[in-house]
Measured scan of single mutants.
Amino acid sequence: KNAAKIVNEALNQGITLFVSDNKLKYKTNRDSIPSELLEEWKQHKQELIDFLTQLES
């Protein structure tokens, strides 16, 4: 999976991924984040940080 797909899947579940101080963060109104999503974010962390940083610049 690529970073764009992961970010879109998160958005579809009401979760916004973003970068703050070079760290991957998220915002959501959900009570909890599915563990498989958290695991996927960890596996692709640097790719996600790079992707989101490019989007914001």
Score class of each variant (00 low, 15 high):
35 S>A: 15
33 I>V: 13
22 N>S: 08
45 K>A: 14
1 K>M: 09
46 Q>H: 09
21 D>V: 04
11 L>S: 08
5 K>E: 15
34 P>F: 03
17 L>R: 01
42 K>W: 13
42 K>E: 15
22 N>L: 06
6 I>Q: 02
14 G>R: 04
22 N>R: 06
19 V>Q: 03
40 E>L: 13
16 T>G: 03
3 A>R: 01
24 L>R: 00
25 K>L: 13
54 Q>I: 08
4 A>Q: 13
8 N>G: 11
15 I>E: 01
16 T>K: 10
5 K>N: 12
23 K>H: 08
29 N>Y: 12
38 L>W: 08
15 I>D: 00
25 K>I: 07
29 N>E: 15
53 T>A: 07
27 K>L: 08
51 F>V: 02
46 Q>E: 12
1 K>Q: 09
12 N>G: 11
45 K>H: 14
53 T>E: 07
17 L>P: 01
9 E>N: 08
17 L>T: 00
8 N>A: 15
32 S>K: 12
55 L>H: 14
11 L>H: 09
6 I>S: 01
41 W>Q: 00
5 K>H: 13
53 T>S: 13
11 L>T: 10
34 P>D: 06
2 N>F: 08
53 T>N: 11
49 I>T: 04
55 L>E: 11
39 E>P: 03
38 L>D: 02
11 L>F: 10
16 T>Y: 12
10 A>G: 03
13 Q>N: 13
2 N>Q: 13
24 L>I: 07
36 E>T: 10
12 N>D: 14
35 S>M: 14
17 L>M: 04
19 V>M: 05
5 K>Y: 15
10 A>D: 00
44 H>I: 04
49 I>L: 07
44 H>V: 04
30 R>V: 06
52 L>A: 01
56 E>C: 08
18 F>W: 06
39 E>D: 14
33 I>Q: 02
3 A>E: 03
15 I>K: 00
27 K>C: 09
43 Q>I: 14
33 I>N: 01
48 L>G: 00
32 S>Y: 13
23 K>L: 10
29 N>I: 08
48 L>M: 03
57 S>P: 12
42 K>H: 13
11 L>P: 00
50 D>I: 10
28 T>S: 10
34 P>S: 06
30 R>C: 06
2 N>G: 12
20 S>G: 07
33 I>W: 03
38 L>C: 08
8 N>E: 15
16 T>I: 14
10 A>P: 00
1 K>D: 08
41 W>M: 07
1 K>I: 11
31 D>I: 09
10 A>N: 02
4 A>W: 12
37 L>C: 04
37 L>G: 01
31 D>E: 14
46 Q>T: 08
23 K>D: 14
44 H>W: 09
15 I>F: 07
27 K>P: 01
21 D>K: 06
7 V>H: 04
18 F>Y: 15
19 V>C: 04
45 K>G: 10
47 E>S: 08
23 K>P: 00
39 E>T: 08
28 T>P: 10
53 T>G: 07
20 S>Y: 11
40 E>M: 12
3 A>W: 05
